[in-house]
């Protein structure tokens, strides 16, 4: 059976998207909607914006991000997500490993 591109994407996202979320927080703290925009609403990284939130909860429980409630000018307080030192270190490790990995994948896939 030939897998659909959706199935391939679902597999590829595993173990990768959380680091993309961490990377989006590198420039500074962000609240959920803002973070979803940074990740790109039309990108292939998230199935939908809602899927970001279980992932953020796991990152928080892992100690890679912290959350702070900040008053919002337009509604309920915003939950800001911020990268921790440990999260930053995890991102650095991933980035270095990812470069080697993608280089190898590209070399292998190229005809």
């Amino acid at each position: 059976m030939v897998p659909s591109s959706d199935v391939v994407l679902t597999q590829l996202r595993k173990g990768v998207v959380e680091y993309c979320v961490l990377a989006c927080l590198r420039s500074g703290p962000a609240y959920g909607l803002e973070l979803a925009e940074r990740l790109g609403a039309t990108s292939t990284l998230l199935t939908s914006e809602g899927t970001l939130y279980p992932l953020l909860s796991r990152l928080r429980q892992q100690g890679w991000v912290t959350t702070t409630q900040v008053a919002s000018p337009m509604g309920p307080p915003r939950r800001y997500y911020e990268l921790t030192t440990e999260g930053r270190a995890a991102l650095e490790t991933f980035t270095a490993t990812w470069s080697r990995f993608t280089a190898d994948v590209r070399t292998t896939l190229e005809p």
Binding site: Y31, S48, P76
Partner: peptide
């Protein structure tokens, strides 16, 4: 929070509500 923020941004009428739900995606995917 996402829903409240998005509704405040795009309006809480029917069109605004549908837009929020489109952004968030199917509950099964979450």
């Amino acid at each position: 929070e996402h829903a409240a923020e998005s509704l405040a941004l795009h309006g809480s009428d029917d069109a605004g509500a549908r837009r929020v739900l489109d952004e968030l995606g199917p509950v099964d995917a979450i």
